[in-house]
Structures are given as C-alpha cells and as structure tokens.
C-alpha cells in the first residue's frame, strides 16, 4: 500500500464527477476495493465537493440590469454615424486633393503665361515688336486692344527706336517706376531710357516698355482662390458639423431614454 499519486487523485476526482472513461473507471474501482488509502482520498474529495455544494447561495445585493448611458453602452446608431465615421478620412482626402491643386495651379498658370501666343495677335501690337514674347496673362487683353489708344505717347517713340536684341516687352502696371524697373531688371535708368528712346521721367499705365529681362515682380496674377484656405474652411465647417451631429445624437439618445 503506497500513498496515492497526483495522477491517482486526479482520476479519483474525475470519477467523482463521473467523467472518467469506463475502462479507467472499472480499473480504479477495483483498486479502491483493495486500497484503503485511495478510499480515504476519494472520501475527502467527495466531502469537499458536498461541502461546497452546501454553501448557501447568496442573493444578489441589487439588480444588475443595464441602462443606456452606462459606460460603453451607446444609443442605437443614427444613419449620420455612417458618414461621420468616415468623415476624417474624407477630410484627409479632400485636404490632399486641395494641396495637390494648390501646387499644380501656379505651375499650370506659368505654363500658360509663357506659351507662345496665338498668331492672330499681331495686329494691334505690330509696332511693339511682334516677336517679343509676352510673359503675363494680363497682356492678352492688351494685345487685343489697340495700344496707341491706351498709351498715347508710346507710338511716337517705339517705331523709330531700335530695341536691343533679346529685350522683352513689358506692360507698365500701376506703381511701376523707372528706378524700380531698372533695379528689378538689373539695368540703369539712363540705359532703359536710351533703349526705349523714352526720356520722360513718368511712365504710363499700359505703356509697352522694353526691359533686358523680365522684372522679378511680374504683373499681378489673377487672384486664384487659395485651395489651402478653402480646405481649412472646409475642415472647420466639417468639424463643426460633426460636433453638432454628435451632440444631436447624444440628445436624441437621452430623449429616448427618458421616454
């Protein structure tokens, strides 16, 4: 007679619960007949089980029923949630699109501005070096309109004046000065005056003036609505609307609960 092993105890415990396979169960029953130590262990296990079963069942101290509004329990999902849960992804996509647009537009614009103008343009501008390339979009309307009407003094100077090769035509904009243009084009005031045969100190708006290179500050671009600005506005509006919808959802849930 030896002390029951851990395996014996496990088998006895399983026998007690009736989960031991039949073959093992029969063998164990035979051993139980012969071994009082096994019987003792079996009885101990059985008594423990009975004791535990005899533990008085306590009643729950309160009801554990759930209420809406308990942490983590959400009101039924309103249809707007479907849109809202993707809104941030949508906003990101919009943002990227707007950013791309913002980068591409100025580039596109420069391409337009520097492309050769349609051939039909020569007429009105004939006296102002037709081969000169325009570098602003602004010049397009100027090309259509007869220049002499707009800049009266110019026709007198231009036809007789030999323009140095490689100089470009520039339409004077409000705010342009001789000194300013000279500085920006990298030339001197007398040099400009000589080349253009223009010895007055004043320049006239829409007057065609020749410069060695395009001034740094080209004609003001047509105001392109800033895509970034619109993106920011859109995001702000989206966030505001989202917050409002969430609030509405919460209020609706509360209202439902009260009802």
């Amino acid at each position: 007679m030896k002390n029951p092993t851990q395996k014996d105890v496990e088998q006895l415990s399983a026998l007690l619960d009736g989960t031991l396979p039949l073959a093992k169960s029969t063998r164990l029953q035979e051993r139980l007949q012969a071994d009082p130590a096994l019987v003792s262990v079996y009885q101990q296990l059985s008594q423990t089980k009975n004791l535990l079963r005899a533990l008085p069942a306590r009643r729950a101290p309160r009801n554990f029923t759930l209420r809406r509004g308990m942490q983590g329990l959400q009101a039924p999902v309103p249809p707007a949630a479907l849109f809202l849960q993707w809104s941030s992804a949508l906003a990101t996509l919009l943002f990227v699109f707007a950013l791309a647009l913002n980068t591409a537009l100025p580039w596109w614009d420069t391409r337009l501005a520097y492309s050769p103008l349609p051939t039909g343009r020569g007429g009105g501008m004939s006296d102002a070096a037709p081969q000169a390339e325009s570098f602003t979009l602004q010049e397009l309307p100027a090309a259509e309109a007869p220049v002499p009407d707009l800049a009266a003094p110019n026709p007198k100077a231009a036809p007789t004046c030999p323009i140095p090769e490689g100089w470009q035509a520039y339409t004077i904009q409000p705010g342009d000065t001789l000194i300013g243009l000279a500085q920006q084009a990298g030339a001197t005031v007398p040099g400009l005056q000589e080349a253009n045969c223009w010895y007055e100190e004043n320049l006239y708006i829409d007057q065609v003036f020749y410069l060695p290179s395009a001034p740094l500050r080209s004609a003001p671009q047509p105001p392109i609505p800033s895509a970034a600005l619109y993106t920011l506005l859109g995001l702000g509006a989206g966030l505001g609307a989202g917050a409002y919808l969430m609030r509405w959802r919460k209020n609706r849930a509360l209202w439902r609960e009260e009802r």
């Binding site: 851990q6 105890v9 496990e10 415990s13 399983a14 262990v41 296990l45 008594q47 423990t48 535990l52």
Partner: peptide, 22 residues
C-alpha cells in the same frame, strides 16, 4: 482536471482546521 483535484484536496486540508464546524 489536475487543478480541480488539487484544489479539492487543499480545501479539504484547510477545512480540517474547522473540524468542529463541519
């Protein structure tokens, strides 16, 4: 299975101390 068997035995040993209550 093994935890249950051991737990029952240990409970039994512990409860021996309260013999007079059983």
């Amino acid at each position: 299975k093994s935890r249950l068997a051991r737990a029952r035995l240990r409970l039994r040993e512990c409860l021996q101390d309260f013999w007079e209550l059983l």
